[in-house]
Design a protein around this nucleic acid. Structure first.
Lengths: 141, 141
DNA sequence: ACTTGACTTGGAGTACACTCCAAGTTGTAA
DNA sequence: TTACAACTTGGAGTGTACTCCAAGTCAAGT
């Protein structure tokens, strides 16, 4: 989706960011997003970079960053380039966190595959399915 | 951690499952866990398989399965082997969901790495950091 | 007999992230 | 000018998943 230089309605912003109108207003209300400029009638306007920074926030959110953490990051951004090292370390830490999360997901994936295999065996050979089956690890739950 | 055949306190159950006492009681209260047997004094006792099934639940939870979905799965389990095909399809669907989640995490990982690289450049060569820098995509937020 | 500690219960409270609503304003179109 | 749609606001309500608390019970140790 091409982002225009100026976005002149909250509706358009929702289409570009994937957030709802309510969520955008909520983020502004709690200070996660800066107070947006308004047109003469009070409607919000956004420049392209603002939309891009909202999209970046949605990425962070989608990887489990909390609103408070995102707020902290954004506040540092607004303080200029002196805070780049700090922002860098926040991103590095988050990167590590995601890496661990990925590893955890792979591990559980393996466990689920094991269980799926067991269920497939049962459906193909119902004799294995009696409740006294020795494979308690597979049969649990 | 070796799971004993019989677990005679909720404390021990927390150590084996990683859940808190409150969470275990809460899960039982809402019917995610079956009503546990009690000792004469009312204290909960668990058999090994029960602990194992709690641990399996924590895996599902850790990969984003909601309590309602876990409840549904557990109810099917309690209905016996006729529900194995249904349970199979639930696990397969969840497996797919996790696969997508992993892909999404990798994608965001890439975006974060891109930003980290940019910040590293800035810290090593501060001349690039002036606010009029052309690389708006990198500089946003 | 009394204290201590580990548990029990029902129910209330909390944290997070929205989501919805009522009442009001503005710009355009009939 | 009147209707309508698209926004605005402050504030209340919702869903999920816990988390905490007060009051009580029980077994074991001193």
């Amino acid at each position: 989706m091409e982002i225009p230089e100026v976005v002149t309605s909250i509706k358009q912003a929702t289409e570009l960011t994937g957030l709802t109108e309510d969520t955008i207003r909520y983020y502004e209300k709690i200070g996660l997003l800066p107070y947006a400029d308004r047109k003469r009638n009070g409607h919000r306007v956004y420049r392209r970079e603002q939309i891009q920074s909202i999209i970046f926030l949605t990425r962070l959110k989608a990887t489990g960053m909390t609103i408070e953490e995102m707020k902290r990051y954004r506040e540092l951004s607004s303080l200029g380039n002196d805070t780049v090292p700090l922002r860098l370390s926040i991103l590095e830490e988050h990167h590590q966190k995601i890496q661990k999360e990925i590893a955890r997901l792979f591990e559980v994936q393996r466990i689920i595959e094991y269980k799926i295999d067991h269920y497939r065996e049962i459906t193909q050979n119902p004799d294995l399915s009696d409740t006294n089956c020795a494979s308690t690890i597979k049969n649990d739950l």
